[in-house]
Design a protein around this nucleic acid. Structure first.
Length: 761
DNA sequence: ATGCACGTACTTTTT
DNA sequence: GTACGTGCAT
């Protein structure tokens, strides 16, 4: 197979590079994945490197999956033997195998952010620390920073120069102690402990660094010190470390990413070979020039410039709107126009926002226009309460020391065990050194008192029965079924008075089917890289792979559900757009305070570095576009319930002026529209803000309709919605069709005479 | 112990 | 404008 076919010169150079450190600057749309996969294929096919001795690390599961899939096409099933996955998954893997060398329980559980927050709150409460001055999330952020920099509580303690920092250090210490007691690692610990493994255990370092003939790191601009240390240790023996990234796309500083790491790679490895991939296969030259105009204002970036063979292209359309509603209406109109002109699918359009809060006006405008819009990356599957509950039951069964998981389900479904009781149980547990579970199961009336003891009885029965169930279950689904059954979980959900009962049942069902997919994968496949992970020495109770299931539910955010398959325009944040591409990109909210964000502009922690990161965010957005970019700003915006005047983004001024198309301004209000004009709506519109939806002089009965298309209203069960259609008013048969904001309520036709509808301003 | 009402605060979120 | 956390009343 010719692995070089269709590759450009620097790409070929990268593919052919075999030994020694290699740094690839891969610009947006420069064919990075192609280059990487071909390089790995070359190692395997032409240099006889056993796949099992290659480590390829990514930040996301998605990236890892994509890469594995493409490698499968190149080298076949052999690709499954490559150690490929996220930093966290790879670290977890190693720790399951050798964690015992540094004193870890091989059955450790992984705490996600929610678990960590619960634990932190518990600590603050127990230690009587004022959670207003020391909020749990901020404590966790400081701790995360420390861990990303491989600092221990003692390290923090010794450099603490203020009472605040001393509290942080103290809290950090307690946090680690409790994690340890729960046999748990948080996300950052996975990395930190993996680093500790290869530094403290000479044997482990020898083993793993010998094993990996090649180490590849993707998105290297986003690595932190812990990740760097880990990668360096693993590559220490053979020194075949290949890192790929783009400093211009580093947008995760707030998560510990340190751009300097990629910029200083040459200092770490003085013999590093450097390759720049600057030919772009995604965008028009105009788009690249516009993006370059912006990014070139950053200092200390690696000099480079994307170019493409597709010369010219459309100019960047710029629009100024009166407010966010007008802005959204403008976007819908452009999409409708473009879609008619070109033959584009709705999914060819993406709306990229700085913050999630920008999405509301778009949801409304799209609903009015009846153009499907899909919000991407808003709520993650495993973050849902009902899913967390079920996972917590499994966690408790798997690891009896996981007090946080037990704490979550101790009163779910409600069984009369309240905060006071839980507090008391926790006290006893800590004082006696027992796990919460042992206190509940093994302490009697003498210790707990009569009332509590009695209230605990049903929970005890459930836990004990489930323990037996876990030992007998042959699959995760089977065990989950038992959990649902023993806890009466469905009944509990149906009793949900907030009206989300049905959604939640649906979520549980979706979770069950995910579990069943996992089951079948485990049962008939030799799952990838983990030949060592199945340790016959440590028999597990319940499904042998329950631990793996828990791990994947902690490490896979769960590509959000609701994949309806319907063609829809997507809306997402700039952050989640990284790595994606779209023919047409809209970037609304090009304002001072939004992009660049106020926190970077005039907040406490504002500064040149923060502004540069905002600029990179802008750059990431611009370079997502293949054909056209539409930028817009609103001159007034309501944020946090306060309407304020805004200034256009400074980044607009950084665009080469000749590449900006301002004709959009002229069109505002003038463009006649549109498919959402219905019976009594005219297509004319003035410049007033409600103009596009105002009633017209068109056919209209003597009485004006009570509900007009475009109007917002509220229904006690379905929530808020927008009128998308209505019958002529008057008479018993009058109806309105309402698109409700809640995804699941959807569209409903309601009889005006009967439905308890309320207008909303 | 649970439910409601009020006050406050609030980017981004790969794992 | 909402979502969450605290505090009070049931």
């Amino acid at each position: 197979m010719d692995l070089l076919a269709g590759l450009n010169e620097p790409q070929r150079e990268a593919v052919l590079h075999v030994s020694g450190p290699l740094l690839i600057f891969a610009g947006a749309g420069s064919g990075k994945t192609r280059t990487l996969t071909h390089r790995v294929a070359n190692l395997i096919l032409h240099h006889r490197v056993p796949a099992g001795r290659i480590l390829a690390v990514t930040f996301t599961n998605k990236a890892a999956r994509e890469m594995r899939e493409r490698l499968n096409q190149l080298v076949g099933a052999e690709a499954n033997r490559i150690w490929m996955g996220t930093f966290h998954a790879m670290c977890a893997q190693m720790l399951r195998i050798h964690g015992h060398l540094i004193g870890l329980d091989p059955r450790f559980v992984i705490f996600d952010t929610d678990d960590s927050t619960r634990l932190m709150k518990e600590i603050l409460r127990d230690a009587d620390i004022d959670s207003d001055r020391y909020p749990a999330p901020r404590m966790l952020a400081r701790i995360s920073d420390a861990k990303n920099n491989l600092q221990s509580p003692d390290d923090l303690q010794s450099v603490a120069g203020s009472p605040y920092h001393r509290v942080v250090a103290r809290v950090f210490k307690m946090y680690q102690e409790r994690l340890k007691a729960a046999h748990a690692l948080d996300f950052d610990d996975l990395l930190g402990e993996a680093v500790r493994l290869v530094t403290e255990s000479e044997w482990a370092r020898e083993h793993w660094s010998e094993r990996f003939l090649h180490v590849m790191i993707d998105e290297f601009q986003d690595v932190n010190q812990a990740q760097l240390a880990w990668a360096k240790a693993l590559a220490s023996k053979h020194r075949n470390i290949c890192v790929v990234g783009d400093d211009d796309q580093s947008i995760y500083k707030w998560r510990g990413a340190d751009v300097k790491i990629i910029l200083d790679f040459e200092k770490q490895y003085s013999d590093a070979h450097i390759i720049r991939l600057e030919q772009n296969y995604r965008s028009t030259q105009n788009i690249l020039d516009a993006a370059h105009g912006v990014i070139s204002n950053n200092f200390g970036r690696k000099a480079k410039r994307l170019w493409t063979q597709t010369q010219g292209g459309e100019r960047i359309v710029l629009n100024g709107a009166a407010n966010a509603q007008e802005e959204a209406a403008w976007v819908v109109r452009q999409i409708e126009l473009l879609q008619r002109e070109q033959h584009l699918k709705l999914s060819d359009f993406a709306i990229l926002c700085r913050v999630n809060a920008q999405s509301r006006p778009f949801e409304e405008a799209f609903m009015r226009a009846r153009v499907p819009l899909k919000l991407v990356g808003t709520q993650r599957f495993y973050d849902r309460k009902e899913i967390k509950d079920l996972v917590s039951y499994l966690k408790v069964l798997y690891n009896p020391n996981d007090n946080i998981a037990l704490g979550r389900i101790i009163n779910v479904p409600a069984r009369g065990i309240g905060a006071t009781t839980i507090e008391k149980l926790g006290m006893i547990a800590r004082e006696s050194g027992l796990s919460l579970r042992d206190v509940i199961l093994n302490c009697g009336q003498e210790v707990l008192g009569r009332a509590i003891n009695m209230k605990l009885e049903p929970l005890r029965r459930i836990l004990i029965t489930l323990q037996t169930d876990a030992e007998n279950a042959r699959s995760v689904v089977e065990l989950l079924d038992k959990v649902l059954d023993r806890t009466n979980y469905y009944e509990f959900l149906r009793g949900d008075r907030t009206g989300n009962g049905n959604d939640r049942v649906a979520n549980v069902e979706e979770f069950m089917s995910a579990a069943s997919v996992f089951d079948s994968r485990m049962q008939d496949e030799d799952f990838g890289f983990s030949d060592e992970s199945r340790d016959p020495e440590s028999p597990m109770e319940g499904p042998p792979y329950l631990g793996l299931f828990l791990e994947s539910s902690a490490l896979e955010s769960g590509t959000e559900s609701g994949a309806t398959g319907e063609d829809a325009t997507v809306l997402m944040t700039l952050h989640s757009a990284k790595g994606l591409e779209f023919p047409i990109v809209f970037m609304p909210g090009m304002e001072q305070g939004l992009l660049p964000h106020s926190r970077a502009l005039w907040g406490e922690q504002s500064g040149p570095d923060e502004l540069e990161e905002e600029r990179r965010l802008c750059y990431v957005g611009l370079t997502r576009a293949q054909q056209r970019i539409y930028l817009s700003y609103a001159t007034q915006r309501t944020l946090h319930g306060r309407t304020e005047s805004t200034q256009p983004s400074q980044f607009i001024d950084e665009l080469p002026p000749q590449l900006i198309d301002r004709s959009g301004f002229a069109r505002v209000g003038a463009s006649s529209v549109s498919s959402y004009a219905t019976t009594w709506e005219s297509s004319g519109s003035s410049s007033s803000s409600r103009s596009a939806f105002a009633p017209a002089a068109a056919p209209r009965s003597s009485e004006p309709p009570r509900y007009r298309v475009g109007e917002r209203l509220k229904h006690p069960t379905f929530g808020e919605g927008v009128v998308v259609n209505a019958s002529p008013s008057g008479g018993a048969g009058e109806w309105v069709e309402v698109a409700f904001l809640s995804q699941d309520a959807g569209k409903k036709k309601l009889a005006v005479a009967f439905a308890p509808l309320e207008k909303v301003e």
